[in-house]
Design a protein around this nucleic acid. Structure first.
Length: 270
DNA sequence: CGCTGACCCTGACGGC
DNA sequence: TGCCGTCAGGGTCAGC
């Protein structure tokens, strides 16, 4: 599912159809998402003008004068612009119909995503604990180094912790650790400051590049405009367990770490 | 406080 | 062909 670049790609894809538009109707066919879709969401959203679409980590925020719609795509969610006349398919759970005739359609087979409402100025608990944006200036290797002191959990789990930094999901965690030469199971507290500088820089570089490429296409991901991303061709380790390391030729090893598949090179990563 | 594992849900895929 | 186990890009939560 979407990691940060996919969410950003979705944001950019849908924005041209949404900004300045008034919501005509909210159609909820299936309210059972990660949390139930609030019954009052329609009343809150309909009639409002979408003034901005922001992203915080992997959350999207549709801003209106009355409050904000908070959307998370979960593992399998997508948001696409379709013509209002297009019939919904299986797992097309929610439509946001705009007065222009366009329709934002939320599709999510696994239903791990969410649609929630935020009052103006409300700091939702889901957002209040989040760490810095990886592409912001306040995130860097020093931030990782400081937070990691004394931590015994694996550095891979550490960088995937949204309280540490948002937006680093399983694909990019694997990639970034490979590029940094760091063993994913190494204790976070036992990675040097110098290596965290490298890791921090690689997180910024890889996510920036992935956003520019339009995200990573795996299985069914498509951006808001329906076009697939092209980052998948550039993956070094994710999905390549048992294959040869592109740097040294060793066979890539695959392990489970915090219930997530982890792929790394025993030669390149220490 | 930090860490681990269960859990939420559907679908795809491989082995038998 | 079907059945079964496993796995999938997310995150929360309880328990230690």
């Amino acid at each position: 599912m979407p990691e940060l670049p996919e969410v950003e790609t979705t944001r950019r894809g849908v924005a041209p159809w949404c900004l300045g538009e008034v919501v005509e109707a909210l159609v909820v066919r299936e309210p059972r998402l990660r949390w139930p879709v609030p019954p009052r969401l329609g009343q809150q959203l309909v009639g409002q003008r979408i003034e901005a679409i922001d992203r915080r980590g992997k959350y999207l925020l549709f801003r209106t004068a009355a409050g904000s719609l908070l959307v998370h795509l979960g593992m399998s969610g997508s948001l696409r612009v379709v013509d209002a006349g297009q019939l919904p398919g299986r797992h097309d759970h929610i439509d946001i119909r705009l007065q222009s005739g366009a329709c934002l359609r939320y599709h999510d087979p696994r239903r791990f995503g969410c649609f929630l409402w935020l009052e103006p100025g409300e700091l939702h608990p889901l957002l209040s604990q989040l760490g810095p944006e990886p592409l912001a200036a306040e995130f860097d290797g020093d931030h990782l180094f400081r937070l990691s002191r004394g931590r015994t959990s694996a550095v891979k789990s550490f960088i995937m912790d949204a309280k540490v930094v948002v937006g680093v999901g399983n694909i990019y965690a694997n990639e970034v650790l490979f590029l940094s030469g760091i063993h994913p199971r190494r204790a976070a507290g036992r990675v040097s400051q110098a290596r965290y500088q490298i890791l921090g820089n690689n997180i910024k570089q890889v996510l920036t590049s992935a956003v520019e490429q339009g995200g990573t296409t795996l299985r069914d991901f498509v951006g808001g405009d329906g076009k697939p991303g092209y980052f998948a061709q550039r993956l070094y380790v994710y999905g390549r367990g048992g294959e040869d390391c592109k740097a040294c030729g060793s066979r890539l090893r695959e392990i489970r770490l915090g219930q997530r598949t982890t792929v790394f090179c025993v030669t390149c990563q220490r």
